[in-house]
Design a protein around this nucleic acid. Structure first.
Length: 423
RNA sequence: GGAGAGAUGGCCGAGUGGUCUAAGGCGGCGGUCUUGAAAACCGCUGUGGGGCAACCCACCGGGGGUUCGAAUCCCUCUCUCUCCGCCA
């Protein structure tokens, strides 16, 4: 959420945020509501002040044995007027907040303006592999190697639920263990293991609800719990409603979790194999930092992600997302796309975003600055990284003509010393 | 699932209708004393909002109600703890 004060102090900034992200929000209505609220407040508070003052007088007079019936009658009217103003204020506040939640974060100055065609490739690394044969897509390779049982996955749960088997299951386990170890040891992240179900307050805190509610798995029958779409949700909410110490910033957290997404509205798109699934594994990186540091922290976060993709020897490119293509809450976002030789495409394996104070204001995450004053923290996160598409790239890029797949060196210790996947 | 108890500032904890503008303690910051430190003593020490200065308003788990006046009384929800039952 943007700072409501901007409605009064810099409405053009708010309008520009909507314009750059091509979001249609009722900014003018919000400004009018805010103006009305500011008119009500002084009147309400003056009356409250009077009530406080007179109530004390009544107490004193009663003690002195005087009759206070007349004053009480008068105060009753004041009380009714206050109640009326309070009702109107609450009503305005609710409407105002509802509109504020539909206003996106303001993109950074160096985010390309426009839709996805304006996305800017800012870096690339590695060579696309070349083959003396026609490379196969991962679902063919995995099936031949007995790594997946897609049919039975459908039987057990439904389309988009992957049943990993044998080396497939082991590769999943190897990858998320490797990711966690690597970020903890080499990049200084603290490891967490969060709940996979969270309450509504947490989902609101990170912004999935209400905007994306239809894309979330929701246990509403008895519990009103949501299956997390990413570990970002529980990890960011660790510090919801807290004031952090300046000395401990930046906080760098990483966590493995399964991720659950209904992918409502994405049916029929990239549905083969592992490209788009309802449940997948991911290691997520989350940072909390002071306001001045967030864009610098974004670059460091980007480096951490690049580092791990390079360790896996996966060719990738980094894209600075255009204002309309980045998420609602982001101020700036890099996408990491890994090359997958079998499907012949770049696949999004990580998204690395800075939310400035937008998410933290919503989740009420603050820190004490040098003057001991509470300030809204800045939050960032990145996938570090998402498994299915990484698995696709590893398998398709490292495939051999005989159907075996070379295992990247860094993963071999996690695969019991195996150097290749073979039947 | 059954029964009971409870939720107060960074933490502990008092308060059961009117100097609560929340006692007291711990912790933290500043000062006096000291070569330095400790101790002792003195002062300061919550969040949000409106004017942006004095000041004022709100906040005692959330929401609603009673009252001239609510941390305090009533309703409701949530959470925590204890005991019992069940259970990986």
């Amino acid at each position: 959420m943007l700072d409501m004060r901007l409605l009064k102090d810099d409405p053009e900034y708010v309008r520009e945020a909507c314009r750059l992200k091509r979001v249609d929000a009722r900014v003018d209505e919000a400004i009018a509501l805010d103006t009305r609220r500011r008119a009500i407040l002084p009147e309400k508070e003056t009356l409250q002040n009077e009530r406080n003052r007179v109530s004390k007088e009544i107490a004193a007079q009663k003690k002195a044995g005087k009759d206070t019936a007349a004053v009480q009658e008068e105060m009753k009217k004041v009380g009714e007027r206050i109640a009326l103003l309070e009702t109107e204020e609450r009503d305005i506040q609710d409407k105002l907040k509802a509109i504020m939640l539909t206003i996106p974060n303001h993109p950074a100055a160096d985010s390309p303006v426009g839709d996805e065609t304006a996305n800017l490739e800012v870096a690339s690394w590695g060579q696309k592999p070349s083959f003396s044969f026609t490379p196969k897509p991962h679902w063919e390779i995995c099936e031949a190697l007995g790594m997946l049982d897609l049919k039975r996955g459908v039987k057990i749960a439904g389309a988009g639920f992957i049943l990993y088997k044998g080396l497939g299951a082991r590769l999943e386990r190897a990858l998320y263990n490797f990711f966690l170890d690597y970020h903890v040891r080499n990049h200084g992240y603290t490891e967490w293991f969060p709940p996979f179900l969270v309450n509504r307050d947490s989902m609101i805190g990170t912004g999935q609800v209400p905007r994306m509610e239809e894309d979330m798995y929701h246990c509403d029958k008895d519990d009103d719990l949501f299956l997390i779409p990413t570990a970002e949700v529980p990890i960011t909410n660790i510090h919801r409603d807290e004031i952090l110490d300046l000395a401990e910033l930046p906080l760098k957290y990483c966590a493995y979790s399964a991720c659950f997404r209904r992918e409502a509205g994405a049916a029929g798109k990239d549905t083969r194999g592992l490209l788009r699934v309802h449940q997948f594994n991911k290691v997520e990186l989350v940072k909390f930092c002071r306001a001045e540091e967030s864009f610098n922290e974004l670059e460091l976060l980007r480096k951490d992600v690049e580092d791990i993709l390079q360790a896996l020897e996966l060719p990738y490119r980094v894209v600075n997302l255009a204002t309309c293509d980045m998420s609602f809450s982001a101020a700036k976002c890099y996408d990491f796309e890994v090359w997958a030789a079998g499907v012949g495409k770049y696949l999004e394996a990580s998204s690395c975003s800075v939310f400035t104070d937008y998410q933290a204001r919503r989740a009420n995450i603050r820190y004490r600055d040098e003057n001991k004053k509470p300030r809204i923290a800045h939050t960032l996160n990145a996938s570090g990284v998402a498994l299915p598409r990484t698995v696709v790239a590893i398998i398709e890029n490292n495939q051999r003509e005989d159907g075996s797949v070379a295992i990247p060196k860094v993963l071999q210790p996690y695969m019991g010393g195996m150097t290749e996947l073979r039947v």
